[in-house]
Write a protein that binds this DNA or RNA. Structure first.
Length: 566
RNA sequence: CGGGGUGUAGCUCAGUCAGGCUAGAGCGCACGGUUCGGGACCGUGAGGCCGGCAGUUCGAAUCUGCCCACCCCGACCA
C-alpha cells in the first residue's frame, strides 16, 4: 500500500474527545473514526488488524472444537419474550419495527437464537457436545459508551455457545474455552488474568472474566496480594473484620438531634463505625427493601440485587421514602412492617450496635440481631475495599482497574429449560442441554492490544497483528535513484510474501519517521541517498533503537528471517 | 437516569465575563520557490449557517429561553 493514496490520515494533535491511550492512538493513527457516541467506522488500517484478530480467534475456537456459523442480527421480539429477557434486557435493546408493525430488536447477544437453532438440529445425546460460534455485530444501547473502543454500542463479538449432556461435560467445555481464550490473548499480545465474576442478568452459575489490568479500564478487579484470589469487584468476597463480642444489653433510646450520617453519629457518641448499624432503603422492582449493614462497610448493589432476585434496584429517593412512611437517617429494623429486611452476614455476630430509632433526632443503643430484630435474608452484601482481607488466605486485597477482554459463563440449564432445548439421553428420557456461553469483543480486544503495545511515539504492533509487516520509508523522493530502488524493493518484497506500507509521499524525513513510529509496523525500512552509497536499505525494528544496513539484493531473504524471529 | 464540562475552519484552540465581527491563530490543505536522516522555511490562496431554533437589541459568536450533540464521573452494563 502506498501511503500517498492511503485512506486514513495521521493526526499530529490528540483529538479533544480522546482521553485513554488506546483511543488517542487509534484516532491519531487513523485506524477508526467515530460516527456517533459509541459507534465507530474502521478505516483500512484498523480493519486489517481487526481481521487478523478475528482470524486468531477463529483458529483458537476451531482448535478447541468450535464450529463457525452465522446468525441474524435482526431478531423478532417473540424470541426474547419466551426467555423473559424482553424485560431484563429492555434497557439496552435497539428496537426496530417493520412496515407491518412487527417488532424486532437488533441482537445484543444470541443465547435465544442459538437455542432456537439447537432445537431443530439436535435430538439425541449422540449429537453432543457441540460448540457453535459466530463472529458478528452486536447492538447494545449502553447507558454510557466510553473510552473509544472499550465500551461501544455497536460492536463485533465472537460468541460461542456450548451444549453438553451433563455438568461434567460443561466443565470440560469450559476448560477448553478457558485454554482457548488464554491462547487467543497470548497471541494478541495482551496479558490477561482470570478473575471470578458475577453472572449478572444473563443468569447461570459460575463465571470468569479475562481481565487486562490497565488504568484505562472501566472495571475494578479485587486481587489478593499473595495471589490466592482474584475477582471482579462486583463479586469479590472478603474476610470481614471481627469485632469484640459483648453480652447483649437492653435497648436504650438516645437523643441525637440533627445527627444523620454514620460519621456524625460516631463523633456525637464517641464510638467507632463498626459499632453502628447502617440502614439503607432500596427499591427492588418497586418493592421497598430495608438493608442493614455495619457502619464500617458499604452495600455492594450487585450482591444485593442477586440476594433479592431483583432486576431494577436503586436507592429510594425522598419521595419514595415518604410514600413508604420511612425516615432516612434514623431508620431502624425494629418495628418495620411490610418491608423486606436484608442484613449483611456480619451483622448477626456484631453485638450492641447503635442504629436509628425510626423517628427524627433519636437513635437506639444495644441493637442485637436475633433478640431485637431479624431479617428476611442474611447474606454477604458488602463491598470489598482496598485493604480488606482475602477470603482464602487473609492477606490484604488490592483494587486494580481492568478491561474485561473475555467472559466465560456456565449457564447450566437456565435457557435450555425455559426455551425447551432438550435431547433424548441414552435412557430415552428428554433432558435439558447443559449450556455455556463465551464472549470476546473484537474491537475492545483491538483497544487492549494498543493499550498493551505502545510507547510515547505510537503503536508497536505485535508482528502477528500488524496491518503490514514493513514500513518502507523513501527519503529524497526527488531523486530517481531513491525512487527506483524503493519501487523495486516494494515489488520484490510483496512478491516474497512480505506486506509493505510504502511511504512514497513527498514529505520531510521527520514527518515520515514520526508517522512510521505512530503507525507502528514491526520493521521500518529506509532507503535514502545515504543508504544507496552502499546499495543497501536500513532496517530497524519498531521495538528497538538500533538499525542495520542490509544490501538491497538480500533484503527479501533477510527480512523474511527477521519477521520469523521477533 | 443524576452530577460536571464542551460545542467557533479537516484538527487543536483564542475571542463570549463587559454586544460593535467585515470572526482570528497554529497545524493541515492548494499553488510557487528554497530545503531534505526525526513533525523545515518563505510567499500566495482556498476553507466558517460561531451546534440548532426562538427571543432581547439599532446591532448577537457574545445576553435570555428551549432543544440537540459530544466528552468525563457516577448509576447501569450478556
Amino acid at each position: 500500500m502506498r501511503l500517498s493514496h492511503h485512506f486514513g490520515k495521521t493526526l499530529r494533535q490528540v483529538p479533544a474527545e480522546a482521553e485513554t491511550v488506546s483511543h488517542q492512538l487509534l484516532l491519531r493513527a487513523g485506524l477508526v473514526q467515530q460516527l456517533a457516541a459509541g459507534i465507530y467506522a474502521y478505516l483500512p488500517l484498523g480493519w486489517r488488524v481487526l481481521r487478523k484478530i478475528e482470524q486468531i480467534i477463529r483458529e483458537e475456537m476451531d482448535a478447541a472444537g468450535g464450529q463457525e456459523l452465522f446468525m441474524p442480527a435482526l431478531l423478532p421480539i417473540e424470541l426474547w419474550e419466551a426467555s423473559g429477557r424482553d424485560q431484563t434486557m429492555a434497557d439496552i435493546f435497539f428496537r426496530v419495527t417493520d412496515k407491518r408493525e412487527r417488532r424486532f430488536v437488533l441482537g445484543p447477544t444470541h443465547e435465544e437464537i442459538i437455542v432456537d437453532l439447537f432445537k431443530r438440529q439436535v435430538q439425541s445425546y449422540r449429537d453432543l457436545p457441540l460448540m457453535p460460534y459466530q463472529i458478528q455485530v452486536k447492538f447494545r444501547d449502553e447507558a454510557r459508551p466510553r473510552g473509544g473502543l472499550i465500551r461501544v454500542r455497536e460492536f463485533t463479538m465472537k460468541d460461542l455457545y456450548s451444549f453438553d449432556t451433563d455438568w461434567e461435560g460443561l466443565d470440560e467445555s469450559c476448560r477448553k474455552m478457558l485454554r482457548a481464550y488464554q491462547n487467543t490473548f497470548d497471541r494478541c499480545g495482551v496479558p490477561t488474568s482470570i478473575v471470578e465474576a458475577d453472572s449478572g442478568a444473563i443468569g447461570g452459575k459460575d463465571s470468569w472474566e479475562f481481565m487486562f489490568f490497565c488504568d484505562s479500564g472501566e472495571d475494578q478487579a479485587v486481587l489478593c496480594s499473595a495471589g490466592d484470589y482474584a475477582a471482579n469487584a462486583e463479586k469479590a468476597e472478603f474476610r470481614k473484620p471481627t469485632i469484640p463480642q459483648e453480652p447483649p444489653q437492653a435497648v436504650e433510646e438516645v437523643a441525637t438531634p440533627g445527627v444523620k450520617a454514620i460519621d456524625d453519629l460516631c463523633a456525637f457518641l464517641g464510638i467507632s463505625s463498626w459499632q453502628t448499624l447502617k440502614a439503607v432503603f432500596y427499591a427492588a422492582d418497586g418493592q421497598p427493601a430495608f438493608v442493614a449493614i455495619r457502619g464500617d462497610m458499604e452495600v455492594n448493589e450487585t450482591k444485593l440485587r442477586n440476594a433479592l432476585g431483583a432486576v431494577d434496584l436503586h436507592m429510594m429517593d425522598d419521595a419514595e421514602l415518604t410514600a413508604a412512611g420511612l425516615v432516612a437517617g434514623y431508620a431502624s429494623p425494629i418495628g418495620l412492617k411490610n418491608v423486606k429486611v436484608v442484613a449483611d452476614d456480619a451483622v448477626p455476630s456484631s453485638s450492641n450496635l447503635v442504629g436509628g430509632a425510626n423517628k427524627p433526632d433519636a437513635h437506639l443503643r444495644n441493637l442485637n440481631y436475633g433478640c431485637d430484630w431479624t431479617a428476611d435474608i442474611v447474606t454477604d452484601i458488602a463491598v470489598a475495599r482496598e485493604g480488606a482481607l482475602c477470603p482464602r488466605c487473609g492477606s490484604p486485597l488490592t483494587l486494580q482497574r481492568a478491561i474485561e477482554m473475555g467472559h466465560v459463563f456456565k449457564l447450566g440449564t437456565v435457557y435450555s429449560e425455559k426455551l425447551g432445548a432438550t435431547f433424548l439421553d441414552r435412557d430415552g428420557v428428554a433432558k435439558p442441554a447443559v449450556m455455556g456461553t463465551y464472549g470476546i469483543g473484537t474491537g475492545r480486544l483491538l483497544a487492549g492490544v494498543v493499550e498493551a503495545n505502545h510507547d510515547e511515539q505510537g503503536i508497536i504492533w505485535p508482528p502477528q497483528l500488524a496491518p503490514y509487516d514493513t514500513h518502507l520509508v523513501a527519503l529524497g523522493t526527488d531523486r530517481s535513484d531513491v525512487v527506483q530502488a524503493c519501487e523495486r524493493l516494494y515489488e520484490e518484497l510483496q512478491q516474497a510474501g512480505i506486506s509493505v506500507l510504502y511511504d512514497d509521499r513527498d514529505e520531510s524525513p521527520g514527518v515520515k519517521f514520526n508517522d512510521a513510529d505512530l503507525l507502528g509496523m514491526p520493521l521500518r525500512l529506509t532507503v535514502s541517498p545515504r543508504t544507496l552509497t552502499s546499495q543497501s536499505v536500513e532496517v530497524k525494528r519498531r521495538s528497538e533503537k538500533e538499525s542495520t544496513l542490509v544490501p538491497l539484493g538480500e533484503a527479501a531473504a533477510r527480512l523474511r528471517e527477521l519477521l520469523k524471529q521477533p
